[in-house]
């Protein structure tokens, strides 16, 4: 899958515009354009360029950034920790709260608590992250002064972007958790557990929760993947120096090596996340391991 993606990204980025024309002034002569093309190997036939690209891949050599004049992979990897940090904090906020809300909803269906959780989860899903980010800044940073408006630094800088990003996974995961828990609570083994006199807390937390976790983990993995490649808007608004904001700048300037390197790194991360999710399946449901 990664190989297919690499091939697609390589050829698509070569088809969307001439990076040299963007780099040089609009009235650059053909000679100047050819000189720069030769410098970056862009004057070779496409298949030759692809061959050079493939030969560099095992060494992690995606070529140099045309604008930053440094190895593209190094530039992308420099931005990676900020992206992982933001995604990690976001999920650390969203996942436990979402699971707790989903359980509350499922244990007391159609109650006031259930309705509040449903409304909150729908709001989290449907709210525009762009608008939410600005409101977060206006209220918590500008108004109350609790957090910085934006930027990157200590722990306080991550709170607002992470809270903003947490809205969507919180909504999605809590809904999935609720549905999965309701299904599990209707099963016979739950009735048996209750008949044996186990407390509702034990039934829910020790008998039902683990069995209901497979769809939740699947959704959480999907959300982590989305955070790794879809936090562009939030990174740009908050001035967060992650891969997303780098990618936007690279796309605008057709900095092809960075676009390709960032895409490949993000894809590798998503594949890793999916692999971890598969491992968790095995823990949650032994049938997966033995099947």
């Amino acid at each position: 899958m990664l190989a297919s993606l690499i091939i697609i990204v390589f050829f698509v980025t070569r088809m969307v515009g001439d990076p040299v024309r963007l780099m040089l002034h609009p009235n650059a002569t053909d000679e100047q354009i050819q000189t720069v093309r030769a410098k970056y190997g862009l004057d070779d036939p496409l298949l030759v360029q692809f061959g050079h690209f493939l030969s560099g891949l095992p060494r992690g050599d995606f070529g140099d950034s045309m604008w930053q004049r440094a190895p593209a992979l190094e530039i992308v990897l420099n931005r990676l920790p900020a992206t992982l940090y933001l995604a990690g904090v976001t999920m650390a906020i969203a996942f436990p709260i979402a699971v707790a809300l989903g359980i509350i909803s499922a244990v007391w269906p159609r109650s006031l608590a259930d309705r509040i959780v449903t409304v909150l989860s729908l709001a989290g899903l449907s709210i525009a992250d762009f608008w939410l980010a600005l409101m977060m800044i206006l209220f918590f940073a500008e108004g109350l002064g609790w957090f910085p408006t934006s930027g990157f630094g200590g722990a306080k800088f991550v709170v607002l972007p992470a809270l903003t990003l947490a809205a969507r996974p919180l909504g999605r995961i809590s809904q999935i958790q609720r549905t999965a828990m309701l299904d599990e609570l209707a099963n016979g083994y739950v009735t048996t557990a209750r008949a044996k006199g186990l407390s509702e807390r034990v039934v829910v937390l020790f008998h039902t929760l683990k069995n209901a976790s497979i769809p939740t983990v699947t959704m959480a993995g999907h959300e982590v993947a989305s955070l790794l490649n879809g936090a562009i808007v939030i990174e740009v608004i908050f001035g967060w120096p992650g891969i997303g904001s780098l990618l936007i700048q690279a796309i605008e300037r057709r900095d092809l090596t960075i676009v390709v390197a960032a895409t490949v790194v993000i894809a590798a991360l998503v594949i890793t996340v999916n692999f971890v999710v598969d491992l968790i399946y095995g823990w949650a449901d032994p049938r997966v391991r033995f099947g």
Binding site: L134, A141, E142, T149, I237
Partner: peptide, 18 residues
């Protein structure tokens, strides 16, 4: 020099004296 694309965020930085 810091970089914020959104005008509203830049204004918020001034208001918050960042």
């Amino acid at each position: 020099f810091v970089f914020r694309t959104e005008s509203a965020v830049r204004a918020a930085q001034i208001v918050a004296n960042e």
